[in-house]
């Protein structure tokens, strides 16, 4: 039975609420409370996101004076134009794309074969290797010793510092192992063996093509993780040209180092200065949207798979 086809049993509770007439007074009060609470939750989560979107396309002066609340006003795309004019942001964006793709690739090459080997009951040493991995989830050398090892490996200021040390995600590996265990039957292996197929061939030609769902989940998990993280880059990449998008965002959104040059002191100049400052703030809203865009575009797809992944993960074997 595939773990990925459990949808049929998904809705259990609301099927038995009965018709409106048969519901007791207590139940109706309960339903009303649930409805109100969840609507509040919905608004609390949705409004800040919505606000970012409308602010990014509204007149910056109106946004800065708090006049944009429910609808965009004075629609302009100036913020977006400003973002695209910023060389370092674009550079960071492409750096991040590169690190993410490479990171996902390396991670899969390391994780999937291990997961498959550990899913096989006939694999000698399975227990020992499992313990070897699980231990790393609970004890770690800490920041400094890890940093020193990465440094002595010569990874400072290279992609490898971001890509290699975390390539073996133990949790991901266990999810993949559970998937292989439940979805690749031993009979399949026996049949292939009789046809003269060895383990490597079997893994590449039969196991991987059958594992699209789990590969998608891992790609998304690892990819989003790489795209959104900044700590490793802060730690290991000192050269500005190599820094990923999240660090560039940090300069602008958090450290606010993006100063507007002074324009002189005439009335016109002061007005212009005001406007530029407003644009600078507006750029932040646009920047938030652009930097989240890759993830946002994948979101509908991600959501479906992420949820499945959590389900498989919680049933770890």
């Amino acid at each position: 039975m595939s773990l990925f086809k459990r949808k049929a049993s998904e809705n259990t509770f609301s099927d038995f609420t009965g018709s409106a007439k048969s519901r007791s007074f207590e139940d109706r009060v309960y339903d009303a409370i649930v409805f109100v609470v969840l609507t509040l939750v919905f608004l609390i989560v949705a409004y800040p996101l919505y606000f970012i979107i409308i602010s990014s396309i509204s007149d910056p002066v109106l946004v800065a004076s708090g006049q944009v609340t429910f609808w965009p006003r004075g629609i302009t795309f100036e913020g977006y134009q400003e973002v695209f004019k910023k060389g370092e942001v674009m550079r960071g964006f492409f750096n991040s794309v590169y690190y993410t793709l490479l990171g996902v690739g390396v991670s899969l090459v390391v994780t999937l074969p291990t997961a498959y080997a550990l899913s096989r009951d006939d694999f000698f040493g399975r227990k020992v290797i499992s313990i070897f991995y699980v231990l790393t989830m609970f004890v770690s050398g800490g920041l400094i010793p890890t940093y020193l090892v990465v440094r002595s490996a010569g990874f400072i200021d290279t992609v490898w510092a971001l890509v290699i040390p975390g390539a073996m995600g133990v949790y991901n590996m266990m999810v993949a192992r559970t998937f292989f265990k439940t979805n690749i039957s031993p009979e399949l292996l026996d049949a292939a063996k009789i046809d003269g197929c060895n383990d490597t061939w079997f893994f590449l030609r039969i196991v991987l093509p059958l594992s699209g769902a789990i590969i998608a989940i891992l790609v998304l998990w690892i990819g989003v993780g790489h795209w959104n993280s900044y700590f490793n880059a802060l730690l290991y990449l000192n050269q500005r040209e190599r820094q990923p998008l999240q660090l560039e965002l940090r300069y602008i959104l958090i450290l606010n180092t993006d100063y507007v040059a002074s324009q002189g002191m005439s009335l016109e100049a002061i007005k212009e200065q005001r406007r530029l400052e407003a644009v600078k703030e507006m750029l932040k809203y646009s920047l938030i949207i652009i930097s989240s865009l890759p993830v946002l575009l994948l979101y509908p797809f991600i959501q479906k798979h992420f949820v499945k992944g959590v389900t498989v993960g919680s049933l770890k074997g």
């Binding site: 090459v109 390391v110 994780t111 074969p113 291990t114 498959y116 080997a117 550990l118 290797i129 070897f132 991995y133 790393t136 770690s140 050398g141 800490g142 010793p145 890890t146 020193l148 090892v149 990465v150 490996a153 290699i164 040390p165 975390g166 390539a167 073996m168 590996m173 383990d199 893994f203």
Partner: peptide, 16 residues
């Protein structure tokens, strides 16, 4: 199959 994972984990988890 396990080798790359073991090497990486050994170097970046166990040596630290």
């Amino acid at each position: 199959f396990c080798l790359p994972g073991i090497i990486i984990t050994f170097i970046f988890h166990y040596i630290p």
